[in-house]
Write a protein that binds this DNA or RNA. Structure first.
Lengths: 172, 172
DNA sequence: GTAGTTGCAAAGATTTTGCCACCAA
DNA sequence: TTGGTGGCAAAATCTTTGCAACTAC
């Protein structure tokens, strides 16, 4: 596994997201700054749903003077503007996802890593449409999105008996 | 809405969980102390998936001398022992759920409140078996559980245009 | 020019830990 | 007894904020 998305993705949707970031930013009332472009690009190119701190380390490689506060601030702005998602992991550390296309998450109970899980059959199972079947509401709750959170143990933790995969990423 | 579960639940599964807590605790190698019983009981009787701090305030009503550290420590122990769940919310504040029966969550983007969502058609077992049609694995990932995280805007936030429901609970 | 943005440092919030007295087994 | 547990306070970690300098529009 690498830190970057698969090549076929990079040439497609990810590249498009990065290209359109500037206009999406302005549409949200946010100035199009160098820091924001790099923060978004680093997140969009990551497949590991990084924490703010992990992303900061990656951003700093391209923008050595960037501050952690700027990363935190903009992750929050992006999230509020719907440009990125905060991942629901059940851990207190916030993780972010630059891919807002419908997909699910595999969350490791041992190392808290998060992997994407695309499964057309589940969309076919009508999970999301079942949830939103009544005009986008469940009772009084206005449904925006429904995702699967699949929890268990990732391959790395099973083979290394609990050693945190995260460790490898921390040395960014 | 109240802070306690519906009466028909209280007389049933919730009461049973509380009754069996002692033996479940010892089975997990944890001593059966007064603090642990109250912490678990307060969580099991809550329907709002409280944060550690909110739960601490409720526990303190029954055990005035309890410390916040004890609540944090035991929530972690209970979670590791599989007695409770940490709720995946996409916010940095950890929330806990004393109900480990299969159910889903409605997570408000505005106030971060979490409500339960029971739907027989989408019950956890059906999801798990759908997800891991091949012997409990998705690729190399060992699946333990699969839940829906439904995000959107809760009734309170829609009617009060964003006022945090949480505020009501904070005054425990 | 002006409003919005950044970096820095400091503060705030959340969670964990060390240590000794105390309690359950 | 005796190892596990709890309370307290301090530390560690994570996130937000105030402010002066800088930048996009």
């Amino acid at each position: 596994m690498t830190l970057s998305r698969r090549a076929e993705d990079l040439d497609g949707k990810v590249a498009e997201r990065i290209t359109k970031f500037g206009e999406r930013c302005r549409a949200a009332g946010l100035a199009d700054t160098a820091q924001r472009r790099v923060i978004f690009r680093c997140l969009a190119e990551s497949i590991d749903h990084p924490t703010a701190d992990t992303l900061f380390l990656r951003v700093r490689k391209r923008l050595p003077k960037v501050s952690l506060a700027t990363v935190y601030r903009n992750l929050k702005f992006f999230s509020e503007a719907g440009l990125i998602d905060e991942v629901a992991t059940g851990r207190s550390l916030s993780r972010y996802d630059g891919n807002r296309d419908p997909h699910h998450h595999l969350i490791c109970k041992a190392c808290a890593s998060v992997a994407d899980y695309f499964e057309a059959k589940l969309d076919g199972l009508a999970l999301v449409s079942a949830v939103c079947s009544v005009s986008g509401f469940v009772g009084d709750f206005e449904v925006h999105d429904a995702r699967l959170s699949v929890s268990g143990i990732c391959a790395d933790c099973r083979s290394h008996s609990g050693r945190a995969v995260e460790a490898a990423y921390k040395n960014d």
